[in-house]
Amino acid sequence: MASEQKVKILKNTELVPGVGKLVVSCDDSPLPGQFYMLRAWEREPLLSRPISVGRADQGELSFYYLVKGKGTRLLQALKEEESLLLFGPLGKGFPKEEGSVALVGGGIGIAPLIELSHRLPAAPDVYVGFLDTPYALEAFRAQTLAVATDSGRVGHKGFVTELLKPESFDAVYACGPTPMLSALKKLCEGKTRLYVSLEAHMACGVGACLGCAVPSGDSYVRVCKDGPVFLAEEVEL
């Protein structure tokens, strides 16, 4: 059940320019794919920041964040021993599938897949894509790990979707930019089940404000409450 709590910062490190990893002391056991609303300020900015759990282990929660605006800059400035407000865990996580599984992550979208890789019955095949410099690769539990970069600096030069053979897997789990998820949906159609974790601007995190609603057939679903994880066929990408 979601709750608000004040937690202590254990570590806050920069992985590559503009990307950080925040570790806090917390005994929660969120499901892979769930998220928290993070807040380290009193009034401004108005809204807390929704961030997926990257790892939950031995009384610690890890969050990976992309520095994009005032809120994430304030998170980046947090020091060890300072406090942070968490509200969560929120949303629905990844369902467990039997058989062979692939994880596909793009950029900061790798975060919820890290925890998932440790919770699956067997180590999955992991495919990750970045613009230039990869990060957090060592955090995955993986049978194989394939990397793609737009620049060609590391691994395959091109899109991570070019590396995946969906017919080889019973299920694929993915999180990343919407264009990547859209390409994966087309690639996996008729070949395997695809679960996607969506990224969206959120205000409340509990489904009340409808600020994160996305099209689903003739209706809409709330990313924060009905997701953020969906079968790809359930949402428009």
Rank of each mutant, 00 (worst) to 15 (best):
K8V: 15
L137G: 10
D27A: 13
I110F: 04
L181R: 02
I114P: 05
D132C: 04
Q58W: 08
L103M: 03
L231G: 12
L120V: 14
N12G: 14
E115N: 11
T149Q: 08
L164C: 03
A232E: 04
K157F: 13
G33T: 01
S182F: 00
T144P: 10
K6Y: 09
I108K: 00
F94Y: 15
V221Y: 06
T178W: 07
Q143W: 12
L85F: 00
V196Q: 08
S62C: 11
G190Q: 11
R73C: 00
C26G: 07
K225T: 09
S219K: 14
L137F: 12
L187N: 03
L187G: 01
G18V: 05
S219V: 08
V235E: 05
K157W: 14
K157M: 13
D226C: 06
I108Q: 03
S48H: 12
K6L: 14
M180E: 03
G227T: 07
V19I: 15
K185Y: 00
K157N: 13
R55K: 13
L137K: 11
A136Q: 10
V23S: 14
L90W: 03
L116M: 13
V214E: 02
T133I: 02
E236Y: 00
L66A: 10
L22N: 08
C224L: 04
P32C: 00
S151C: 12
G227W: 05
L116G: 12
E4I: 02
D125Y: 05
K191V: 09
P95S: 07
L210V: 06
G106H: 00
G91Q: 03
A142D: 12
L194I: 05
H118K: 14
V147R: 11
A208C: 10
D57N: 14
K185M: 00
A232R: 01
F130T: 03
K186P: 04
E234T: 10
L113Q: 12
P215L: 02
G54T: 10
L103E: 02
S219Q: 13
L78Q: 10
P30E: 05
S3C: 03
E138G: 14
D218E: 14
E14K: 11
L103W: 02
R43T: 15
S168I: 00
V67G: 01
G20Q: 10
P228L: 02
A208Q: 13
T13S: 15
A232G: 13
F140T: 07
E167Y: 00
V67E: 13
